[in-house]
Design a binder for these strands. Structure first.
Length: 595
RNA sequence: GCGCCUGUAGCUCAGAUGGAUAGAGCAACGGACUUCUAAUCCGUAGGCCGCAGGUUCGAGUCCUGCCAGGCGCGCCA
């Protein structure tokens, strides 16, 4: 049914927001370094800088062959035994510098600046890694940053103020939203939040397919149900919408317009279509609202016909010859721009195709000043991407400015049994029902805790049976626990931490350091989620942060006798709370004070 | 047939630019609450990363071929 919500990706488009950061990482990094203060300097960047400095010094002293400074790779080793950061530059450059990797690493180590004692341990390991362990007390700076920035912590400047539109859901107004739309809604909304956090000026838009055959079918379905209500026996065709909601709409139309059946049939069907679409759209709007999704703009497809935009677009392409007449139909020459074949825009019968209005629609988007446009589609529409990308390019818009997030459809199960899903047949589980059963938070988190391109089995029974034991509550519980600590601290009159808590340097227990290290990763997680268009990264980060906090909580007391340590730990707890709250809000999930 | 996506622990899924001993949750088993919320924690067990080649000092990750599943291939949306 839904055209847009259904989804796939294609090679050229993957360039929109590159999957490989290498394409943007280098320029991004340097530009950032030039904007002191606009970005949040992370521990990882400090490490990168020092490695680079070591290379420069080694080259200057003649220990290394002089030449271009290579891109420095700093990674976070999986095992704590390998320190907090490791660089593989010695391995990568061994050939260029004509020296065994371990020797290169040794030279880097000898030139590594650590006068301030930022690193408590530096060593060469394995085939030529240079491992560095940050002094536990140095992590306190991360916490100061979190506190001074508050909910701003984690923001980045990737977008640099560019206007970006995320068009998502865009379900046809022919029936209620189902779970598949829910996934698209959750992904699109979270993506929009993450992009806003990454410096984009974001607009959420819903494209209403209120034109075309399906709307006429909707009108006809409603009209036939109206006849039924009037006691007439009608044959209800299989290609009409079977769902019970059509009957309800028919009743509403009969109340509003009692004489409708005595009207001219064409006019009556048209009226039915318009009313049915309005009623359904209002329901969709309400469902989305309860799901926590609000679109800034609801854009009507019909308006593109009414304003002449579709005709104008086609006409201009006829002028250039990119739209041409063949076999009685008008074709768009998309194959010249990467599509498999040319596509029809005006059929033999004179009616335009969906593609025709989509061309005008996308021209309209850019004409409104958007630098970038992201469409969120269901994966079954992936074959549609090349032709639309071709149309965008033919319209004089750089291909990188258009991208599509494909969301795999949801495989809905109930107790292991697959639930059939088809709007036309009327057999489907609505988003509304899912929200009623498991709650919007649970539903959103399930949608967002997997890569959007991996298939999703959503078992309603399993979700409910996990009532008390699931990742959403796990994260929310961490938030509630912290809130509870502060409530008790307030009741006991325990003095709160100061603006920049000096005793944060007391947080040197392994469990505390692990929490701080995780907090330090947050800005990069948000940035990567934006860069790769992968909101699930935030969900996984939050689970990890919550786990580390729970582990800390079980091992150490926050409200302890030592007043300095107590303040430091409150300071830590509040930092975690800020991140959990902020991260959950990116995902559109509530962060409760108590559970 | 062609194209795209997916294939990692019994189940659901992560896995960063190609890095060191592949991770988490659920399920299973064994422990931890007179102490800030046990919706938690600690531990044990669980793996030819679909298969086979290739590139590389190094491959779950890149290349090629194959297998399995999903989706697409319309003058539908």
């Amino acid at each position: 049914m839904l055209s847009r919500l259904s989804s796939a990706k294609i090679r050229p488009l993957a360039r929109n927001l590159p999957r490989r950061p290498s394409q943007t990482a280098a320029p991004r990094d340097t530009s950032r370094d030039n904007h002191e203060g606009r970005r949040q300097q992370t521990m990882k960047h400090l490490m990168e800088t020092r490695v680079r400095d070591a290379i420069e010094k080694a080259m200057a002293s003649g220990a290394l062959l002089p030449g271009e400074i290579p891109g420095v790779v700093v990674e976070e080793p999986k095992s704590e035994d390998h320190g907090d950061y490791a660089t593989t530059v010695a391995l990568a450059m061994a050939k260029t510098w004509k020296m065994p990797p371990r020797n290169v690493a040794g030279i880097l180590l000898a030139h590594f600046g650590n006068d301030d004692g930022l690193f408590s341990r530096l060593e060469i390991a394995g085939p030529g890694f240079l491992n560095a362990t940050v002094a536990p007390s140095a992590w306190a700076d991360v916490l100061h940053t979190v506190h001074s920035l508050g909910s701003e912590y984690g923001k980045n400047t990737l977008g640099a103020g560019q206007k970006i539109m995320v068009e998502f859901v865009s379900a046809n107004p022919t029936g209620p939203l189902h779970v598949g739309h829910g996934r698209g809604a959750a992904v699109g909304d979270a993506m929009a939040n993450i992009l806003r956090h990454s410096g984009f000026d974001v607009t959420r838009e819903y494209y209403i397919n209120d034109s075309g055959r399906q709307i006429r079918t909707l009108g006809r379905s409603t009209y036939l149900r109206l006849k039924e209500l009037a006691g007439q026996t009608v044959e209800f065709p299989g290609d009409c919408y079977q769902g019970d909601y059509i009957r309800e709409i028919a009743r509403a139309v009969r109340e509003e317009t009692p004489g409708i059946l005595s009207m001219d049939e064409d006019a009556a069907v048209m009226l039915c279509a318009r009313r049915a679409a309005d009623i359904i759209l209002e329901g969709i709007r309400q469902d989305l609202c309860d799901f926590g999704v609000t679109h800034d703009i609801w854009f009507s497809e019909q308006s593109l016909y009414d304003s002449g935009a579709v005709d104008a677009a086609l006409e201009s392409f006829k002028q250039t010859g990119q739209v041409y007449l063949k076999d009685g139909a008008w074709w768009f020459a998309t194959s010249a721009l990467g599509d498999e074949k040319d596509r029809v825009v005006i059929r033999q019968n004179g009616l335009t195709t969906y593609f025709a209005s989509d061309i005008a629609y996308h021209q309209n988007k850019y004409a409104r000043g958007f630098d970038k446009v992201i469409d969120v589609w269901g994966a079954d529409h992936h074959g549609y991407i090349p032709r639309l990308a071709a149309a965008v390019e033919a319209s004089g818009i750089a291909r990188e400015r258009f991208s599509v997030i494909l969301v795999k459809l949801v495989n809905l199960l109930r107790g292991g049994e697959q639930v059939a899903m088809s709007t036309r047949s009327g057999e489907f589980v609505t988003l509304r029902e899912v929200m009623d059963e498991v709650g919007p938070d649970m539903a959103r988190f399930i949608f967002l805790s997997r890569h959007h391109e991996s298939p999703l089995d959503f078992d309603l029974e399993a979700a409910k049976s996990q009532e008390k034991d699931n990742p959403v509550f796990y994260i929310q519980y961490a938030h509630a626990r912290i809130a509870s600590i502060f409530k008790l601290a307030g009741e006991r009159g325990i003095p709160m931490f100061r603006e920049k808590e000096p005793s944060a340097r007391l947080l040197t227990e392994p469990e505390e350091t692990r929490v701080l290290k995780k907090m330090a990763q947050y800005p990069e997680v948000v940035e990567r989620a934006a860069l790769f268009q992968e909101p699930h990264r935030v969900a996984f980060f939050l689970t990890e942060l919550a786990a580390l906090f729970h582990a800390f909580y079980n091992q150490h007391r926050v409200l302890t006798e030592d007043p300095e340590l107590c303040r430091a730990r409150l300071y830590l707890a509040e930092g975690v709370r800020v991140l959990v709250h902020g991260g959950l809000s990116l995902l559109g999930v509530k962060a409760p004070e108590h559970m």
